[in-house]
Design a protein around this nucleic acid. Structure first.
Length: 114
DNA sequence: GTATTGACAGACG
DNA sequence: GCGTCTGCCAATA
């Protein structure tokens, strides 16, 4: 394909690293995946991600903590459901990053083999 | 090879 | 907190 499959898998790896009850932004994922400034690529790659990977894409939000999908959309509702199921409070298609924002720890970074 | 689009981010008001 | 504009970069047409 036209995109680097290695990077894509790296992104998926990072997303998988997000702990339960926490959320991360696309930019954050892209940065940890070694793709600084390529937040949009993260979104595309997540779109390619097969459901077989059990990828917690619903833990990935915009930089301001808002869901990437419009409120009322099937995907948004599903995402909201999953988050609430894990203890993350979602109001008005938005999450309190102050409380649920994921702060990458050293252990997390090490698991990415940097 | 050029133009348009996008599961975004940051700055402004 | 919210809408708008600009910047970035890759995928698609």
């Amino acid at each position: 394909m036209a995109y680097d499959k290695q990077k894509a898998q790296q992104i998926w790896q990072v997303v998988t690293t997000i702990p339960e009850g926490k959320v991360a932004s696309y930019g954050q994922i892209a940065d940890l995946a070694g793709l600084p400034g390529r937040a949009r690529l993260t979104g595309k790659v997540l779109g390619y991600a097969p459901s077989a990977l059990k990828l917690p894409w619903y833990r990935v939000l915009k930089s301001n903590g808002q869901l990437a999908f419009p409120a009322g959309s099937p995907m948004a509702e599903k995402q909201k459901g999953h988050l609430q199921e894990e203890g993350v409070v979602v109001l008005k298609n938005r999450v309190r990053l102050k409380d649920f924002g994921w702060i990458p720890e050293l252990a997390e970074l090490l698991s990415l083999k940097f």
